[in-house]
Simulated assay, not measured.
Amino acid sequence: MMRVVRPVSFEILRPDWRGVSSQVQAMSTLRVGGCSSGAYGNEHGVSGLNLGDHVSDDHAAVAANRAKLNASLPQDVIFLSQVHGNIVVRAETLVPGVSADAIVSSTPGLVCAVLTADCLPVLFCDAAGRVVAAAHAGWRGLASGILQNTVQEMRLCGAGEIFAWMGPAIGPEKFEVGQDVYDVFTSQDRNAIHSFVKMASDDTVGAGQKYLGDIYQLARDALNSVGVNNISGGKYCTVSDQQKFYSYRRDGVTGRMASLIWISQDNQPMGLLV
């Protein structure tokens, strides 16, 4: 049985969707609004909403942060054990500890969620609000087809027209990658060259060619390849905005934000859009 959902008491981002059923509820948490401190706090080292229990933050603080999040959800969220792969699971059969990078639900009240701190979170729904999903898409997951697999699983669950929202991730001016990453994507799709900008190289240090990659454009291309064209979001940079976002690449030791989506039965508004 679903609990009575309380409005969120912390700032969130919400998808800028149009034409989607009001039964679809979705959000991404930010860095602020919780109990974590130090490297897991806000930019001043206090009141951080770190939701990752695998990053050496104080266990009591993480538990308090998760309890605060769960109070705004119809059921407690079960987080995936994310492995930068392409496995998709169903929320209806999910148990703690499952290794996967995307989750799909067609049952009201079951929450799909992923944790990120530079990797790209993508939330999905169909227009009628019958099927929702969340995917964790770092470059390895993108290259191995995590978004395509998520869309395929949604369609197996009866999804109609699919919408996707790209949450906060490392931006194209900060996502420095090597030749290996460039080669992985361009060997799969020659058009991927348009998602990379070659950086000036210093051959004296033997570092090899470096590129700036656009993880948002790589995701758009992956979604377009399976017929998903209603794509929004992709306007953030976790590395550049220290006030709002955790960033592993910027800080090394840092917390994790959550992107979540579910099918509601009461259309209750969740809270603040920022």
Rank of each mutant, 00 (worst) to 15 (best):
A64L: 15
T107C: 13
E92G: 09
A113W: 01
D57T: 07
R140Q: 15
S81T: 12
A60W: 07
L142Q: 10
T116D: 08
R140E: 15
P96S: 03
I103L: 08
V62E: 04
C119F: 11
A113K: 01
S56F: 04
A127V: 14
K68A: 10
L51T: 04
Q75V: 02
G141L: 02
S47M: 10
A134H: 06
Q75Y: 01
V98P: 03
T116L: 03
L110E: 10
A91S: 14
V55S: 00
L73R: 02
D76F: 00
G48P: 01
L94D: 01
G48W: 03
A133F: 03
G129W: 06
P108G: 12
D126R: 00
L94M: 08
S47P: 00
A61G: 01
L110A: 12
A71G: 03
G109D: 10
V122F: 00
I103N: 00
S72D: 09
A137G: 10
A117M: 12
G138M: 13
E92I: 06
V132F: 13
L73S: 03
S106L: 05
L115R: 10
D53Q: 09
R130G: 10
V114M: 05
P74D: 04
V122S: 00
G52W: 07
V111M: 10
L123F: 09
D53L: 09
D53T: 05
A60E: 13
G45I: 11
V89F: 10
D126L: 00
T107D: 11
H59Q: 13
H84M: 13
S106F: 04
D101W: 09
T107L: 12
V77S: 08
W139A: 10
A61N: 02
A137V: 08
A102P: 09
L73M: 10
L110P: 08
T93H: 14
I87T: 14
A100M: 07
D58M: 10
A113V: 03
V83G: 00
E92L: 05
H84A: 15
H59N: 07
K68M: 12
L94N: 04
Q75F: 00
V46F: 11
D53K: 04
V62A: 05
T116K: 05
S81D: 14
A134T: 07
S105E: 07
V111R: 07
P121E: 10
I78N: 06
V88P: 05
L49S: 02
I103E: 01
F124S: 07
R90M: 09
G109Y: 02
D101Q: 13
Q82K: 14
V111W: 04
F124T: 04
R140D: 15
F124G: 03
V77Q: 06
S47L: 13
C119A: 15
I78S: 11
V114G: 00
L80C: 08
R140S: 15
F79M: 08
S99W: 11
G97Y: 12
L123Y: 02
G85E: 06
C125S: 11
A135T: 03
S105V: 09
W139D: 13
H136N: 08
G45T: 11
V132P: 02
L49Q: 04
Q82L: 13
E92F: 05
A67V: 02
A71S: 13
R66T: 14
V111D: 06
A91Y: 07
A61E: 06
I103Q: 01
G45L: 13
V132L: 12
A91V: 05
C125D: 01
